[in-house]
Simulated assay, not measured.
Amino acid sequence: MAEIRRYPFVWHVRSGTTDHLVHVRRGKTVHSGPGQAFWFRPLSAALSEVPIDDRELSLLFHARTSDFQDVSVQATVAYRMADPDRASRRLDFGLELKNGKWRGRPLEQIAQMLTEAAQQHALDLLVGLTLNQALVSGLGAVRARISQGLAADDRLAQTGVEVVDVRVVAVRPEADVERALQTPAREQVQQDADKATYERRALAVERERTISENELQSQIELATREEQLVTQRGANERRRATEAAAAGRIETQAKAEQTQVLAQARAETTRLVGAAEAETEAARMAVYSEIDRGVLFALAAREAAAHLPQIGSLTLTPDAITSALTALASSTAQGAQGAQGSPGAQGSQGSRGGAR
């Protein structure tokens, strides 16, 4: 807003660069333009300040489609005062000199004018569209219709208002209708999500099945190899046992043959020794058969004496001498009787006696 300073006989006013200040005195325009600063007399001056910056106006109104459905339109209109001098003459932009504020509400008048004009153009368009058409292509159509209608509006042109831009944010039905319209799409999205979930689960199950089959195949392969290993170990053990048995059998046969050979050698040795001993004994007996009995007794006594233990002292009792003499006499008598019974023996005895 303009800055007004009071002095005793004259006042001073200064406006900003985005405010168009108009000074009228006695029906004539004295100063007009943005960023003005001048002195004036309050009793003869009329000041108007028109903003020339771009302003935005938010619009929200309801309309009805051809199928009798209520929709709400949310839009934004950007405008500016293209001809501030004309606007100052058509609308009340006059300033109160006491406080520098507008006496009226010119911006509210402009907002109402733009709202009514934009709403009328949007209603004329939407009344010929169905709800689906309004929701699908309504944004662009409503924006184009409002832009064209406001650009061609004579009242706005005569007021000095220029529409810079029109934006339609949304064309929405009532809440329950919107939920009803969203239900098929939501169901379709849910079905797609369920389908993706099922496909993901099916893929996971398929992968798990593949993994299980691979594990089972690995287990089968391991079992087969283990079976082959057990079979090979059994074959090796049987071969080892067969080889050990064959080696033991060969060793046993060798020992048996060795024992048999040794036994045969011992038997042959024993036989030869026995035969030699028998021959020796026979030769000895043959020699003994030709020797006199007394000589034999003497030899026997010598042989016995050779095997008797060493005698340190010998004690002869009368009983022992008597027994020995008796036995000697008895053996002498038996020898004499034998000699008398055989003439050859007697002759031989006689000759042996004569020889003695």
Rank of each mutant, 00 (worst) to 15 (best):
A2R: 01
I4E: 08
R5T: 11
R5V: 07
R6P: 01
F9S: 15
F9N: 14
V13P: 04
G16K: 02
T18Y: 00
D19V: 03
H20N: 06
H23E: 09
V24M: 03
G27E: 05
H31C: 05
G33T: 00
G35W: 00
G35D: 09
A37C: 05
F38P: 01
F38M: 05
F38V: 03
W39N: 13
P42V: 09
S44A: 12
A45E: 11
V50K: 00
P51C: 08
D54P: 02
R55Y: 04
E56C: 05
L60M: 08
T65W: 01
D67F: 06
Q69M: 08
V71C: 07
V77N: 00
A78P: 00
M81N: 02
D85P: 01
D92L: 05
L97N: 05
G100H: 02
G100M: 02
K101Q: 15
R105D: 15
P106Q: 05
E108W: 03
I110M: 07
T115D: 09
T115V: 06
A118M: 08
H121E: 14
A122N: 02
G128N: 15
Q133H: 07
S137W: 07
A141C: 02
Q148C: 02
D165I: 01
V168H: 06
V171I: 14
R172L: 09
V177Y: 01
R179S: 12
T183R: 14
A193L: 14
K195W: 06
A196W: 03
A196L: 10
T197L: 11
T197V: 06
Y198D: 08
E208P: 01
E208D: 13
R209A: 11
R209F: 03
R209M: 06
S212A: 15
E213G: 03
N214E: 11
L216C: 02
L216S: 08
A223P: 00
T224K: 14
R225I: 04
R225C: 03
R225W: 09
Q228S: 07
Q232V: 04
N236E: 15
R240T: 09
T242S: 07
A247G: 08
G248Y: 14
R249H: 12
A254P: 00
A254E: 13
K255N: 09
Q258N: 10
T269F: 10
T270V: 11
R271E: 13
V273H: 08
A275W: 12
A282Q: 15
A283T: 13
M285Q: 14
M285C: 02
Y288G: 04
I291G: 04
D292W: 04
G294Y: 11
V295P: 01
L296C: 12
F297M: 13
A301E: 10
E303S: 13
A305N: 13
A306L: 15
H307Y: 04
L308Y: 04
Q310N: 06
G312I: 05
L316H: 09
P318D: 14
D319V: 08
S323L: 12
A327P: 00
A333E: 15
A333I: 13
S342H: 08
S342W: 01
Q349C: 08
R352Q: 09
R352H: 06
G353R: 08
A355W: 07
R356K: 06
R356L: 12
